[in-house]
Amino acid sequence: MSSVIRSREFLLAIIIAVSFFIYFPYFIESPKPITDIESWLVSTTVVIASFAVMVSLYTMTRREVMRVTKRVKGWPYSLLMIGLAWFMIIVGVTLGKDAVAFRFCADSFILPGDATIYAILVFYMTSAAARTFKVRDLESLLLLLGAFFVLMQQAPLGEYLFPWFGPIGSWLVNNLAMAASRVFTISATLGGIVLAIRLLAGKEMAMVGLIARREKD
């Protein structure tokens, strides 16, 4: 039985079946039994995503324990990370997400720390603006001009002092940036459709590790 489950053909059959039930009803009006299976599969991914959290916890713990035991550079941070992560898990699972200790850790460490790291960006941005945004060639000049007009349009003071910059900034955002962004979106979508066709044809094997196994074989 286990050899059947681990066989390439079985995994391939699952990929083709799942791809069919997910992609087909998205693009083509399908009968209810097919859309029901689609719904079930999508709901199942939510359960799988929950289990994925446990897998990530396991791999994180394993990696950090190895760093500590091998005393690699910065190992005390690994120790701190394991301690804090497991403290949050134990408190959260045993006392619940509304427990005072859990909320205290979240409100006093995680949230301010997370917000601080993001807020620090403003300091780096200003010093980076002076040190790195230099007009070395035509391309960088165009990039800087674009940034200048958009900044002027975004800042209320810029719009107030130089109202004629607003339309230029809007034109850049709504035309040039939009065109580039749509190229990206359309390319990604076409890539998605190609992936769907490859999955349905059984050509996309990397996602189940079959390519790695083939190389090993």
């Binding site: 200003t126 010093s127 603006a129 945004f133 975004q154 800042a155």
Partner: peptide
């Protein structure tokens, strides 16, 4: 507004 103007001035000075 002020920080966006400062960004522009920083780029100019740089």
């Amino acid at each position: 507004s002020i920080i966006q103007f400062m960004l522009i001035i920083a780029i100019l000075i740089g």
